[in-house]
Structure formats: structure tokens, C-alpha cells
Design a protein around this nucleic acid. Structure first.
Length: 100
DNA sequence: ACTCTGACCCGGC
DNA sequence: GGCCGGGCCAGAG
């Protein structure tokens, strides 16, 4: 495909993430075959529809924190993660779930 | 075609 | 732990 071959891979990898696990934009971009293109991954995730089945809420930055502002849906993301069993240490995700 | 921007990452200080 | 600068990709003005 067209221009979104890698994008499709990114979506696929995102869909492969099990519950209770999170991934960073960089890792996601790497899985999609675009190492270093974390920004690109963020763009795709941001454009993702809310009714999408893709677990976009399991994507966080390398710091292990939600990069999305609370007033933009970050609150919902955190709530979803908590609902799936992801433990938070304040605003930071526990290192144990840092990888899947 | 060029410039700016964005849910980013990494190495160096 | 923090701040700075450079690097990556795609889309919009």
C-alpha cells in the first residue's frame, strides 16, 4: 500500500496490545517500521476516532505519562487504563506495565 | 515548493 | 531528576 502501509502496521500492532499493558509512541513507531517517527505515530493516534476499537488509550509517551491534556480526553484515557488494571503512581505509569 | 506545527524520542550537559 | 538542541514523519497554511 499506498502511503499508509506502515500506518496499517501501526494500527495492527496497537490492536495486538493486550489489556493492562501500555506502549510508548516510539516503540509503536518502531513496530510500524518507522523508528524515530514517534511524532508520526502520535498524529495517527490523535486522528483516531473515539469509537475505534483500537486501544489508543494504551499509548503513552516515553516518560510513562499521558501526553494528552486532561481537558482533551486525557482524563478518559487514565480512567480507561485504571479500569483495565493499569496501576498509576501519581501521573506516571508503573514500570511493570511499561512493556508488554 | 516552503514553512510551521504536533497526543514524540534521545543524547548531552 | 531537569533543560536544550537535533532528528524523525505527515498534514495544513
Amino acid at each position: 500500500m499506498p502511503t499508509s502501509d506502515a500506518a496499517q502496521q501501526l494500527y495492527t500492532a496497537l490492536a495486538q496490545i493486550p489489556e493492562g499493558c501500555v506502549i510508548t509512541y516510539g516503540q509503536l513507531a518502531r513496530l510500524a517500521g518507522r523508528p524515530g517517527a514517534a511524532r508520526w505515530a502520535g498524529s495517527l493516534v490523535r486522528k483516531l476516532p473515539k469509537d475505534s476499537q483500537l486501544p489508543w488509550h494504551r499509548v503513552v509517551n516515553a516518560s510513562g505519562c499521558i501526553s494528552l491534556p486532561p481537558d482533551a480526553g486525557g482524563r478518559e484515557q487514565k480512567q480507561r487504563l485504571l479500569n483495565e488494571g493499569v496501576q498509576f503512581t501519581g501521573e506516571r505509569i508503573k514500570l511493570s506495565q511499561h512493556q508488554w
